[in-house]
Design a protein around this nucleic acid. Sequence first.
DNA 1: TAGTAATTTAT
DNA 2: TAAATTACT
Length: 657
Amino acid sequence: MSGGGCTIVWFRRDLRVEDNPALTAAVRSGAVIAVFIWAPEEEGHYNPGRVSRWWLKQSLIHLNIALKSLGTSLVTKRSSDSVSALLEVIQSTGATQLFFNHLYDPISMVRDHRAKEVLTAHGVAVRSFNADLLYEPWEVNDEEGRPFTTFSGFWDRCLSMPYDPESPLLPPKRIVSGDVSRCASDTIIFEDELEKGSNALLARAWTPGWSNADKALTTFLNGPLIEYSKNRRKVDTATTSFLSPHLHFGEVSVRKVFNLARIKQVLWTNEGNKAGEESVNLFLKSIGLREYSRYMSFNHPHSHERPLLGHLRYFPWVVDEGYFKAWRQGRTGYPLVDAGMRELWATGWLHDRIRVVVSSFFVKVLQLPWRWGMKYFWDTLLDADLESDALGWQYITGTIPDGREFDRVDNLQFEGYKFDPNGEYVRRWLPELIRLPTEWIHHPWNAPESVLQAAGIELGSNYPLPIVEIDAAKARLQEALSQMWQHEAASRAAIENGMEEGLGDSSESTAPIAFPPDTDMDMDHEPIRNNNYPTATINRRYEDQMVPSMTSSFLRVEDEETSTDVRNAADGRGEVPANVNVNEEVRREPIGNALAEFNRRNSEDSTAESSSNGRRERDGGVVPVWSPSGSNYSGDENGMGASSSYLQRSIHSLTSY
DNA sequence: TAGTAATTTAT
DNA sequence: TAAATTACT
C-alpha cells in the first residue's frame, strides 16, 4: 500500500494534542489522519455508561476544535470492530502507518495487539506509545525484577526510579493533514433523547474537553492543592482536583499534572511550608493509585471481574435485588450512604471518602457482590474507569494484599461526624432530613420522637429505618465467614481426596457472580441468572473478545491457584514483547528518515538491537499484550509445586512493606 | 523531657 | 486492628 504515505493517529482515551506522543510522532513523520472509532460493542459489559458517553461526546468536539486549528480534523467512525474500521480508513486514505497510545484494560490489550498483528500483515507500520502513565507497567519492578504486589511498594519505587518520568511534549505547531476526501466520517450517536434529558443537569457542574481540563488543573494547583492535606477529607467542599474524568479521557496528561505539582512542591518546600509539601505528596499519591490501577490491570488482566486473592472464594454473598435497589436509590436509612448515592445519581461524581463509605457499606453491611456495585459505579460515574474502579472495589473488599480487612465494619455514625461534621452534606442531598438537628443527623434512628416530629420526619415513612442494623450485619458477617471456612475446608478435603473441584458451587466465587439484572440506567438489561452462570457465560463473552485458546481448563486451574497468591499470575500477565527497549526515541529522529526507520524496525520484530546508551525508551513498538493462552501458567502437573514456592515468595514480599 | 494516653488513619 | 501521630501530664 503506498500513495499517501500518511499516518493514522488512532485516538482513544488520549483526547488531547499536548503531550500526545502518538500524535507528535505522526506529525514528525509527515501527513496525519486523526481517527476516532466508536465501537462500544467491543467492550462487552463495560461499554461506556450514560454519563461517560455524555462526557466523551463533548470531549471529542473539543479535540476536533484543537485539531482543526492545527490543520486537520477528526475522522469519526462507527463500527462494531475497531480493527476493521482501521482497515477501511487505511484503504480509503492510503495511509501507511498507524500510531496510537497504550491502554491497559484487558479488552484494549487484546484488541490493540490484534490491531497490530492484522495491520502489520497488511503492510502497515504500527507503533504505539505511552501517553497514560508516568512509567510503563513493565518498567516498575522490585529488586528481583518482579512486579510489586502492594501499592506502597509500587509507589515508593515509582518515586525513586533512576530516571524521571518524561517531561510533557508541547502540542504540535501545525499538522499536515492527510487526504480524507474519500474517507467519510460517520455520525456517532452518543445519547438518546431520554438520556439527553437525564444528562441535562451534568452540564451545570462539568465542562469536558482538554482546555477545560487544563483550566481545572490550573485552578487546583493555584488553589486547593496547598491545603490538600488539611482539606482533602472535607466531603462537602471543592477541595479536590476534580481531574478524574479529564484524566480518564486523557484530556490532560498525567505527566503534566505530575510535573506541575512537583514544581509547586519544590516552591513550598523552599518556603518551609510543610503542609504544602505534604499536600503535594498526598495528591501525587492519588495520582499514584491511578498508575497502580493500570499496573494491576496489566499484571492481572482479570482483576476487573475476579478477586486477586481467593480467600473469599466461598463467601456467601447476599444476592438481594431489594438491597441493591435501596442502595442505588439512597434509601438505606444511613444518611451518609444515602446522601452519597443521591449525589452520585444527580452529579455523576463522589468524593473519594464517600466512595469508600458507600462501597464498604455495600460489601460489608449489605454483603452484596462487589461486582454489582462496581457495575453501578461504571454506569453512573463520570470518571468511570475500569482499572481504577476494579482497584477500588478490590481494595474495599479486601481481595488485594493491601486491601481493607474484610471483617472490619465501619461505624457510619462516626464516619458521618468525621466527614460531614455539621450535616451539611447530608442535608444537601437528603431534603427530607433538612430540619433534623446536627446532633441526630447521622443517626436519626436514635432521635427522640419529639425531635423527629419537629423535623417533619417519620422514620419508615418519609425516610427509611436502617435497612440492616449494624449489629445484625456484623453477626451475619461472622456467620457468613464461618460458613465460608467450612465450605473451604470441605472443598480442600475433596481435592485432597483426589476429586475434581466441583464446578457446581465453587465457580461462583472465583468467577464473577452474574451482573445485576437492571441498574436503572436504561442500558444494561442482562437477564437474571443463577449463581452458576458466571464462568461459562462471562468468560465465553471474553473468549469472543480475546483469543479462542482460552479454555475451561485454563480457568479451572486458575480457580485453585490465583486464590491464595497474587504473584502466581495464573491469570496471565500482560506481556511485553521482546523488543521492549529496542526503539530509539522518536522525537530525536530526523523527520525525513522516520518513515523508513519505522518500516525497517517493524520488519525486524524481535531482533533486540541493544540500547547501548542505556537510555530508557518512551516510545516504541511495544503494545501491552494480553493473550490468556500466552500466560506463564505452566500446566496442571506441576501446579502445586510451583505454587508453593510462589506462595513463599509472596509471603516474604508481602511482609516487607 | 520523657512517658503515656488519646486520636487518627489506613490503597 | 495496628501503627503512627498528637495531646497531655
